[in-house]
Design a protein around this nucleic acid. Structure first.
Length: 458
RNA sequence: GUGGAUGUAGCUCAGCUGGUUAGAGCGCCAGAUUGUGGUUCUGGAUGUCGGCGGUUCGAAUCCGCUCUUCCACCCCA
């Protein structure tokens, strides 16, 4: 058989040890903040039934779901008419009953409903796992990536929104990334839609105005008309698009605009409450009311928020919001949830670009023993065991290669200490300890090695 | 899903309007140094030129298809 070139699927990645150290630094930071706010970890399967996933992320989302072909005869139940008709969605529904999860929120809603009897509400959970999207890979966009989610379900309190924003502040200040939090509210968006007399066109309107800072006012208006919005509505929308000033000023303007639109006023009230909490909690991260923030996931009903890095051009590195009835679809209505999702892979890219990772923290092996041969090994092995038992990571070079080669290996692995027990040391019951950083060597009694290393730890 | 760029040694890349034996730096291996790495010096190995097909006397070079990576759009973490 011809050798095949090794490869991995498009948009997926291998992670080397140095990358893992850095990724774990991100995960540990986020996990620690989550824990601090009382969230508990859960995990759910990589694959879910497609019925759980389909229809939750909008039309676009359905297309981006990875589907898993049924095992065995996946053509069972597919007729030749079906095949000829070429109705792909119908065919895939027959041949695939499972899919890879697209995010952690929808599986979580399923989890809550399924395990409700064992949960204490309000339930606070965090979850750090990979998700998959059949998107075309791009900068900061992968087909397999990790999300770090924290959600609270079973509470309407807007304190949670404030909590989440404070968590954003904590995570990014610990990581050393300057960010801005953009916040908006779905109720304001639907208020705007009502205001211009097109309440059922919320999606079209939000998708268009979402691009305001990217393509400019003219283009946005053009796109709105393209999407079939009457001229009168586009004109009516202009005051909203022109909104500027501080958050308070914007909210005051909206209040005036929403005089006869209860939904919109409620959205404004919620935002005021959240801003009030943030001030009281002394949250310092900049939080900016952004009317053009839409967020595609269509299960959001209240606050929506997104975090962008200030010093790096990158899509949002964190997003979330309130969803009032996600568990309703799975048979548990009246449970409100609110959550946030940190994009670990994008955060990794941001830290890389900023060169903001801390200097290599924990090297894996602290001390390596040079291998002088079978006889000398007998002296080393018990010592090695003793070190390991006392929690000091140690290894013995496996072959009696040239010293040069063994030291090169220690050097390449950044092992800070090398111990040598050759014929001379064995005879005198000592070990020659070499500091790889300074190159200095000292002779210490074998019996004292363990204690010495333990002391050096401090 | 649409449009554009890209792929040459382990890595980063050079390689003219097609021409015979495809190069550099770094890394790797060996030696200088038979118990001493990171510096230095000397020597050495390495390629289905992303894959398949076509044009041609001849293809890394031109054409087609395909895959990868990257960029823009759509959308999104």
């Amino acid at each position: 058989m011809a050798v095949q070139k090794p490869s991995i699927p498009k948009g997926t990645r291998d992670f080397l040890p140095t990358e893992m150290a850095r990724r774990n630094y991100i995960f540990d930071t986020i996990r620690e903040v989550f824990r601090c706010y009382g969230f508990q970890p859960i995990e759910t399967p990589a694959m879910e039934n497609l019925s759980t996933l389909l229809g939750k992320y909008g039309e676009e989302g359905d297309k981006l779901l990875f589907r898993i072909l049924n095992s065995g005869n996946f053509l069972e139940g597919v007729s030749s008419q079906d095949l000829d008709a070429g109705n792909l969605p119908a065919l895939s529904a027959r041949m695939c009953e499972k899919g890879l999860r697209y995010d952690l929120t929808v599986p979580f809603a399923r989890f809550v409903v399924q395990n409700q009897s064992q949960l204490v509400f309000p339930f606070r959970r965090y979850q750090i796992q990979p998700v998959w999207r059949a998107d075309r890979p791009q900068k900061g966009r992968y087909r397999e990536f990790f999300q770090c989610d924290a959600d609270v379900v079973g509470s309407d309190s807007l304190l949670h929104e404030a909590d989440l924003i404070q968590m954003v502040e904590q995570v990014f200040s610990r990581l050393g990334i300057r960010v801005v939090v953009k916040i908006n509210n779905r109720k304001i968006l639907s208020g705007v839609a009502s205001l211009i007399g097109a309440p059922e066109r919320v999606t079209d309107i939000t998708v268009a105005i979402d691009k305001l800072d990217k393509i400019g006012l003219e283009q946005v208006n053009a796109e709105l008309r393209e999407r079939g919005l009457p001229d009168a509505a586009v004109v009516a929308l202009q005051p909203v698009l022109a909104l500027s000033g501080s958050n308070q000023e914007k909210l005051a303007c909206l209040d005036a605009l929403f005089e006869h639109i209860p939904d919109g006023r409620e959205g404004v009230r919620e935002l005021r409450e959240i801003f009030d909490y943030l001030a009281t909690m002394q949250v310092e991260v900049p939080v900016e009311l952004d009317l053009t923030l839409a967020r595609g996931l269509n299960y959001y009903t209240g606050a929506i928020l997104e975090v962008k890095a200030l010093d790096v051009a990158m899509g949002s590195i964190c997003g979330g919001g309130r969803y009032d009835n996600l568990t309703g679809i799975f048979g548990l209505p009246g449970i409100s949830g609110v959550g946030i999702s940190f994009g670990a892979d994008r955060i990794f890219d941001v830290l890389t670009q900023l060169d903001a990772f801390p200097r290599e923290t924990a090297q894996s092996t602290r001390i390596m023993f040079v291998n002088f041969g079978a006889e000398e090994q007998r002296q080393v092995l018990p010592l090695l065991s003793a070190l390991r038992r006392s929690g000091i990571s140690a290894e013995l070079y496996p072959e009696a290669s040239k010293i040069k080669k063994q030291l090169s290996y220690a050097d390449a692995r950044h092992i800070p200490l090398v111990a040598m027990i050759g014929a001379d040391e064995a005879a005198s019951g000592t070990v020659t300890l070499k500091d790889m950083q300074t190159g200095t060597q000292q002779s210490v009694p074998v019996s004292g090695l363990c204690g010495l290393l333990a002391a050096m730890e401090r």
